[in-house]
Design a protein around this nucleic acid. Structure first.
Lengths: 584, 584
DNA sequence: CAACTTCACACCTAAGTGTGAATG
DNA sequence: AACATTCACACTTAGGTGTGAAGT
């Protein structure tokens, strides 16, 4: 099965000497990652969270990672010369307040919004060019957490991740000037723990840690998304732990104080909510609803701890092929040891120290920082392979691993950058339509039924799924237009042929489809390439066990890659990889 | 000024032998109207309202006006063979209840929704073809009304109409299957009497009569709208009079009984609203919120007057070029005399008779009805000319009239149809960008500033504007996508260069722009062609004075054409007409 | 038991209604 | 005086909050 091969297509000129077509017999995973101008790592890394912060700092780009000059110097295609997106997080002070406490986001069956709302300001786009703006939320690590003694501690390995859907901003596609004219809000995105959700909400695991990501794609049609370059921005302060009920009372209070919808729970002085500590009663409302909403983020909030009003949290940015670049664990860069997660491995998210350090470290850095050479530190043990997670008949699953070598030869192209190499490598490998799950990108409610999967999701491949969490599908949005979707609500309840994007539709869009035997009706194939070296590594304080290279018959111990490591739309590489792994 | 000429472009094959390019020196207004299979006018027309009903009946098409066979027989382009839209009005029983009383719609400064909501079911589209669905609201006649002695009477000539914006359904463009999958609601459209409205609401005159229209356009991009064929559907029962406060208590009661938001005013038996008459207390809620919303309109409402539950109100449909076909007054067809409106001219809207007659007449007609030959009855006095309404410098205005002869030679092409001639004639004359006002088609609030116009709108061209009310712009919608709009909110407050659609933008869309001297920054040029013969003439009970042919220096007595007579996007013909009227 | 999840609920925001007095 | 318009208001729908008891 899955023998069909589909070549890459590389858009425009590339900075790296890459073949436009990857030989089918060779599991080549091109990893072209644009890195900031490098960062120095001289300070000692004493604890995980601190290391986390450092690694984030390494990719610090102050919202403008790609310098036009450097783009030119590496032969950036003309197409990319006229934009240079700079992204800033709205309400970053409020986000930071939460982050210091260890942000929690409630997930409910019916779907819950995020608070603070994820909202960004975008600058530097080409005014007349159309862009698609998206966000997704990916697991940060392989851990399950618990809140104990007023702190979050690791409580074991992560549960399998559900596929993470891309939330395409409802205004997509729109011209740069439109995106830049006002903050881009993603408040319509909802979080749920309902694995059977049909609304297209983002399904998260409770007590797991997640990182929202923001993506800019230069594309005038959502159908072109899989073939387009993603510029990915990560704001470390938006990291959170999903919960079904708030664990940290301080977080609860922060929510009540700042979310207008929770106004009813505010302490009006009449005794309600006396349970809460008197701390953090200062109102941050202005941060979110006056300052923040106007795009101005001058910090007039001086009631927080010292340093709380640091105005600058910069995002991490990846300018990458959505199919290629794969962030890897912070741990892999830092050290190859300590592969197994300790039960008492504490992520110091709830402690102000590391976060503040990050902030402080960053805000005076205006130059791009050097990056470590990841080509050496990464994947030494060969455990970082390609994970192919397949549904064979809807009941059985297995995994295949590609060799790291074949990837590295592509990844490093003669020496990984320590300087930012702005680059857009576009892979057109998305021919296996089950992986191109556009069903959600439709304004109707998300009613696709995964016939061969539902009712079994909880019991299947508990860890193997942790690599399935990125870029598979796109979230349905009211208002998403210009999507030539052959998917009708009336068709979605059919138990077979679950892939909603009709062959005819794709082909009429110039997309050639070559179904792969045994997979064409199953939308849950995912590929987790790992060789792609990565620098901008946010929130990777825990390293997953990479001991599963030969354990692909045992779902429980499969090699896991955090979805967070995967680029958006990464899984569209699936069939390419599948094709390159015959007989495994 | 305005000497530039821009040729037509005709899309596809045309049923009429029309030149693809109209010579610039000749004021040719191509009028190619697709008419239903004709209707017989044998019954005497005794009163305006009755004539109204007849004329509506004449175009009665039962939602499926264009028969594929007849389309083929007239050489319909292949493009149109795979769809045959049938449109039905949702909640038509409720609409009819209102219509019998004389529907009133409140208009407020802040914008008011319509109730009942304008909602249609569409069938017969090509599933995989993209369509844009729109609606607009156009003046029915040239009258101002007053409610006196429990009836609506004419109270003088109409006030000048503000330009009527096209409300593009937020889901546009979408594929046929998507439009057909559920009722298409236009509840987001808001009515206002605020002539300075910046939201893109539809600006109406209080105490004036209006007719909503629904349009189907086969286009995958909103930019193509002006060059596309509009299929226009009119549901006579949706006619209404705009009011700032309800005049007819029965209408108030009907609203209260059926609009959930007005539930607070319902008579709970405890004495509230005892002012209202006991009549019409029957709840029509089910009509709108259970039956109607499910698309089924079985009448279980038997509490109304006899005949109230007639299930069938069919729409009028025009399949026409948006630039060409021009409905004219019912009066013009019926008779050329009686050009001046009587002060006591009573439109029998509030009386059940005519409306019921219309309904009754129509519902047993399943065949297409013959149409009168409009080429003879129309424009006898030559007063039906081309109205060019220009803003010279923002303060002065004048009008130019084209000759009917030159139009008729095009219109009639050797004998006007008395049978339906399904036809799509597309005019690409929309090169004068001030007339192509797409500024509204943008999801941001409508903030365009008409620098040379605001503060003067009330005083300018009081009657001349009545012909400006159709098809000029497109309403801004949250969610309208795929519109390559060069319009930025930040640009909109610039006092000059008011046209928001940048030259670059249009040109990048393949639209060549040739600004016309002195007009390029003024978006309010409108053209009201009249020679275009028309059959399907809904709600034309009053005829405007056509005595203004030589009065173009006197705004008060300018020739008026009801916006209702103008096809959508008609004004995109403006510069063509302007070009063809040199020196006038 | 302890940890986690679910649910009805009161309380909010946001916005769509006609009212009736005030205004023009 | 008659008429048309505006506005604060109470009431509604719709849906976003955390609560705290109950369930797993």
């Amino acid at each position: 099965m899955a023998m069909a091969y589909h070549p890459f297509q590389v858009h425009g000129a590339d900075a790296f000497p890459l073949p436009a077509v990857i030989p089918g017999a060779q599991p080549s995973l091109i990893s072209a990652l644009t890195l900031p101008d490098a960062a120095s790592f001289s300070d000692p890394l004493l604890e995980r969270a601190a290391a986390d912060a450092r690694l984030r700092a390494a990719a610090e780009l102050r919202g403008r990672p790609v310098h036009p000059r450097s783009m030119k110097s590496v032969g950036q295609p003309e197409q990319w010369l006229d934009d240079d997106p700079k992204v800033t997080l709205e309400s970053k002070d409020l986000w930071s307040e939460f982050h210091k406490m260890g942000t929690e986001m409630v997930i409910t069956k019916s779907g819950r919004r995020m608070f603070p709302p994820f909202k960004v300001c975008v600058e530097g786009l080409s005014e007349s060019t159309k862009y698609i703006l998206l966000m997704d939320i990916v697991a940060v690590d392989d851990c399950r957490y618990k809140f104990h003694n007023s702190r979050w501690t690791v409580a074991g390995k992560a549960d399998p991740e559900m596929p993470k859907r891309m939330y395409i901003h409802p205004d997509s596609p729109s011209k740069g000037e439109q995106w830049m004219s006002k903050p881009v809000a993603f408040h319509k995105l909802k979080l749920t723990n309902n694995i059977s959700d049909k609304h297209g909400f983002t399904i998260l695991n409770s007590m797991h840690k997640y990182q929202p990501r923001f993506h800019i794609v230069r594309a005038n049609d959502i159908m072109k998304l899989p073939y387009s370059t993603f510029r990915t921005y990560v704001f470390p302060e938006t990291e959170f732990i999903a919960v079904t009920a708030y664990q940290n009372e301080k977080i609860t209070q922060l929510k009540i104080d700042n979310n207008p919808f929770a106004k009813g729970f505010r302490d009006t002085g009449n005794g309600r909510r006396e349970k809460r500590s008197a701390l953090h009663k200062m109102s941050l409302r202005e941060l979110l609803f006056s300052k923040a909403d106007q795009g101005g983020a001058d910090s007039d909030d001086s009631s927080g701890p010292p340093g709380a009003s640091e105005p600058f949290y910069s995002p991490l940015e990846l300018v990458s092929s959505p199919l290629m670049s794969t962030p890897t664990y912070a741990k892999d860069i830092e050290s190859d040891s300590d592969l197994d997660l300790e039960e008492d491995d504490v992520l110091k998210v709830g402690l102000p120290g590391p976060a503040r350090t990050l902030t402080t470290n960053l805000r005076h850095e205006d130059v791009l920082q050097p990056m470590p050479d990841l080509s050496k530190s990464n994947n030494k043990d060969g455990s970082n392979g390609i994970i192919v997670h397949r549904a064979h008949d809807g009941n059985e699953y297995f995994m295949e691993l590609g060799s790291y070598e074949s990837q590295r030869s592509v990844n490093n192209d003669g020496g990984l950058p320590t300087k930012l190499r702005p680059h857009s490598l576009t892979c057109l490998s998305n021919f296996h339509y089950p992986t191109l799950d556009f069903s959600g990108v439709y304004r109707q409610p998300f009613v696709r039924v995964r016939a061969s999967f539902k009712k079994r999701q909880l019991s299947m491949t508990p860890t193997g799924f942790s690599c399935l969490g990125v870029g598979p599908g796109f979230t349905p949005l009211p208002g998403i237009n210009d999507f030539d979707n052959g998917f009708l609500p009336s068709q979605t309840i059919q138990p077979s042929g679950a892939f909603p994007l009709s062959r005819h539709t794709l082909e009429s869009q110039g997309v050639s489809l070559s179904p792969i035997d045994g997979m064409s009706s199953y939308p849950y194939h995912r590929v987790a390439p790992i060789g792609a070296s990565v620098s901008a590594l946010p929130a990777c304080s825990a390293t997953p066990s990479l001991s599963g290279i030969h354990q692909h018959r045992n779902p429980k111990t499969w090699l896991r890659l955090s979805p967070y490591q995967l680029p958006p739309s990464f899984t569209s590489c699936q069939n390419l990889l599948t094709a390159s792994l015959p007989g495994r």
